[in-house]
Amino acid sequence: MALDFEWIEPESLEEVKQALSSGDIGTRIVSGGTALSLIMKQGIYSPERLVSLKRVKQQLNYIKADELGNLYIGCMTTLRDMELSPLVQKLAPVIIDALHHVANPRIRYVASIGGNLSHGDAHLDLPPILLAMGAKIKAESTTEERWIELKDFFHGYYETSLEPSEILTEVFIPKQDNRLIGTYMKYTTLSNDDWPTLGVAAFLRIEDGIVSEIRLVVSAVTDVPTQLTEVEEMLWGKSLDEELIEKAALRAYDIVEPLEDLRGSVWYKKEMVKVHIRRVLNQLLLEA
């Protein structure tokens, strides 16, 4: 861990952006600090300057919905705030179910949604869900303000489209069609509160017995959350039955190329993709 880094606590969002404006990679934001402290301890990152969002928390901690039912979540909203939010419960219940199984309450009380996404770690539970829901994030700097679709956001291990000069200020989750049912399956191979070995987010709409919408995202097995468009295409416009589900699961097995790590070999992770795609689809079919 580097010895001397500067710690600053700007009083306004403007000052935060100022602090980041040099675009220097040695400067980073700290929100909850739960992820940052780990990579600092492991020597993966040594900051020169840390910009705490502590004093701007008030302003960046909110969960709002517009009259259409779109959700807006400020970056300093903690995972615990989201978990307990009636608005999220109403508009995105899949998130609530998933949050119950993220780390433990101690972590959820401090970890923020902004940090969760900006961290760019494939082993997190929210990114695949938000990706499947078509979420986007707002990135702001002293010079620019832009929206980035989550599907374009993750680039690799700890790599996102955020520039070092940018802060992620808000997450936008579009209103989901009422007829869409969704679920998230988290699978761990070590302790049950571990980071996922595999995460599968799925949303499905069936009209007149025919799949009229399907979104399937896997995470943790690959370096970025991956939407299985090929598998989705197999299902669109079809009548979902056991046989088709099996085909979809096998297709997923073929196309997902997992990375081997301490939580599983390539072989095993492929197997788990197959099993969980099957389970997710079976579950949604049952609920549809």
Binding site: L38, Q42, N104, L190, S191, N192, D193, D194, L262
Partner: peptide, 15 residues
């Protein structure tokens, strides 16, 4: 290679 508590897990309440 898993000499840290992020990669070496022990049972928790959920286990």
């Amino acid at each position: 290679i898993n000499a840290n508590m992020a990669d070496y897990k022990v049972p928790t309440f959920k286990d």
